[in-house]
Design a protein around this nucleic acid. Structure first.
Lengths: 236, 236
DNA sequence: AAAATACAACTTGTATACATAAATATTTCG
DNA sequence: CGAAATATTTATGTATACAAGTTGTATTTT
């Protein structure tokens, strides 16, 4: 299924993937066949095939006689995610260090430049997409049929988690992002040097950073307000 | 997509999965839409949707304008497989030991009984399917969205590798199978006791057994025949 | 005789019309 | 009024017809 990038089908697929990753379509949101069919000038038959394919890749969920919706994120998601991610990503980066080709290393450097550009001047969505692209390439480098399916699902929710727990005004968050960018550079170096052990360790470090950021978000420092300031509704 | 088990669509899906797992459809084999459409009294539209879904799960591969074929197994398959399998299966069994419900433990025991019955009197395909079912249940127990996709792909090729490297006449193979069955019993015990460490170790042991059996198959003892027995073509 | 090209048969992709199931609004009756 | 039953509407599932692309074969050309 290597779609021509210009076909309406490929356009739709790209659009939906981006929308899911950037949360512009929220988890659980319903997809209407008729509407999308109109918007992308595509009949329902190929549209539904795209749904099924994206469901297979983990972007959507299909329910019998009830259409498609964006994959849910529940409160067990984060736990499942951080259980699986270090292991899978560690394996991916070790294999990437062993198997990377010169061409893919170039791609990875390009993706990192795009990521840095997005850090400086892009939107949150731009940053999430660029980061996603960077990691996808490491997956290509690892080139293991059996690890990729889980890795790609992790990347989907990695992007969505990043979008969820990002607060642009927060200095700590900004600092974390530049650390993440430094990680990317170190990952490139380890892969280029075929340094399997370093690559594996960087995977762990990278996820620890993500987890720290989420902890900051979930358990913030309490607001410093005296009790008793809650507004009461005036009786009619 | 919880299909009614009686719907022609579900029947087709079941049939194709089984055929792929048991090698009754060989890796790389082409699937003809018209023929299958006839055989399962289903029009091409839903049939193609099933193709796409099975492609998402790793049973089939779709190629633009060239229909579907059964997923290939290449030279690198075995290597990729044994790289990923111990890690993923180890994680699955550890999580299964932590999360298994009583209902699923019952299911697992039932699957193991079916497997033993197949060992005694079933065909190679029966055995592969029963074994596949057993491991699928451990995946359900682990209940981690991110690990399951890779695990399920591993199970597909585990079944196919088992079918490929099985020789019914060989005593060593038969012995290995009864060891495998003993592993299953030990796995059930570890899960029931919530013994995470034991479960993880059993995963390793189980794959080592598989790998040994394949080595036996790939590098057999040479045939003991003298040189010089090659027949020459008589000149005309 | 070998290569190139044009044609024909077949396969896949898409659109549309129809069938069926779910959701919603309406009516009926307690 | 309110709850249940029923009609209406809307959305999903399937079949079929047609369009577009691919493959194999026959013919032509060198």
């Amino acid at each position: 299924m290597k779609d021509d990038a210009r076909s309406p089908k490929a356009t739709l697929k790209e659009h939906l993937k981006t929308a899911v990753l950037t949360l512009s379509m929220k988890p659980g949101a319903d997809l209407d066949e008729a509407t999308l069919s109109d918007e992308f000038s595509l009949s329902r038959t190929p549209l539904r095939e795209v749904f099924r394919q994206l469901a297979g890749e983990g972007y959507l969920e299909l329910r019998e006689n009830r259409g498609a919706r964006v994959s849910e994120m529940s409160y067990t998601t984060l736990r499942d995610f951080f259980l699986a991610a270090p292991m899978v990503y560690g394996a991916i980066l070790r294999l990437a260090a062993l198997n990377a080709t010169a061409a893919l290393i170039d791609d990875l450097k390009g993706a990192q430049q795009t990521f840095e550009a997005a850090l400086r001047s892009g939107s949150g969505a731009d940053r999430a997409l660029a980061n996603n692209r960077f990691h996808e390439i490491t997956g290509d480098m690892a080139d293991n049929t059996y690890l990729l399916p889980s890795f790609k699902r992790l990347l989907i929710d990695h992007a969505r988690i990043g979008m969820t727990f990002y607060r642009p005004k927060d200095q700590v968050v900004a600092d974390n992002l530049s650390v993440a960018s430094a990680h990317h550079d170190a990952i490139i170096a380890a892969i280029e040097a075929s340094d399997e052990a370093a690559a594996g360790q960087l995977a762990i470090d990278h996820w620890n950073l993500s987890r720290d950021q989420i902890e900051l978000f979930v358990t913030p420092a309490g607001l410093d307000l005296p009790l008793g300031t809650v507004a009461h509704k005036t009786p009619a």
